[in-house]
């Protein structure tokens, strides 16, 4: 799947650029992507190191285990394959909480850590497990309560009520997330795993 999409992006992009005579831009863009991805890594790296450090303390002290036991009941419904009070549940919980409050930077390391501990449970190491995909759905439907970036943009352009979109955002997110989880559940069930 990734092979086809990646290939499709590059092939259609290059052909379209060639046909419309944008060879200059194309060359620039090919080089730019290296810089852009390095910038991104440099931005993510220290934040991740910091949070992984803090979370290590929480993990060794047993705090994570405690949180995961608390949250395991509701999360267990969404992730039937994860054993009770497994540490991945607490990482998933931390990720969801950080996302909810619009702390994208803090959410990513938790998400990566959650994936890593889901990988420990995974039997086929190169293939995504059902729980991983469910976690992905939870993540991509974007459970945000306070969309800080959007509010500040709306303020910038002189909205009379910059936060009026918060409630619609929450409602749309809840339905989007529920819908996503239902679809995920249906597909996983049809595939029998």
């Amino acid at each position: 799947m990734v092979n086809k999409i990646w290939g499709l992006f590059i092939i259609t992009g290059i052909i379209c650029c060639l046909l419309t005579g944008k060879v200059e831009i194309l060359n620039q863009e090919i080089l730019n992507s290296t810089k852009e991805s390095l910038d991104m890594i440099i931005k993510i790296f220290p934040v991740m190191a910091l949070w992984l450090g803090i979370m290590k303390i929480a993990s060794v002290s047993g705090l994570l285990k405690k949180i995961s036991t608390l949250l395991s009941k509701p999360l267990k419904k969404i992730f039937p394959d994860i054993p009770k009070s497994h540490e991945s549940l607490s990482y998933i919980a931390s990720n969801v909480v950080a996302n909810m409050f619009g702390l994208g930077n803090a959410a990513t390391p938790f998400g990566l850590k959650a994936m890593k501990s889901l990988q420990d449970l995974n039997e086929k190491k190169d293939t995504a497990s059902r729980s991983m995909i469910t976690f992905l759905v939870l993540n991509t439907s974007g459970v945000t309560i306070i969309p800080t970036t959007i509010i500040s943009l709306r303020m910038l352009y002189g909205s009379t009520n910059p936060t009026e979109i918060v409630l619609p955002c929450i409602i749309a997110t809840v339905f989007g997330t529920l819908g996503g989880l239902i679809i995920d559940w249906m597909i996983a069930r049809r595939r029998n795993d």
């Binding site: 990988q119 086929k124 293939t127 995504a128 995909i133 992905l136 759905v137 439907s141 749309a172």
Partner: peptide, 20 residues
């Protein structure tokens, strides 16, 4: 984590976006 076969992940992700 080095997952190469993403199975139905993209399909579900995009459908979830559509619903959103």
């Amino acid at each position: 984590i080095g997952i190469k076969k993403i199975r139905y992940a993209l399909k579900v992700g995009l459908l979830a976006d559509l619903i959103g």
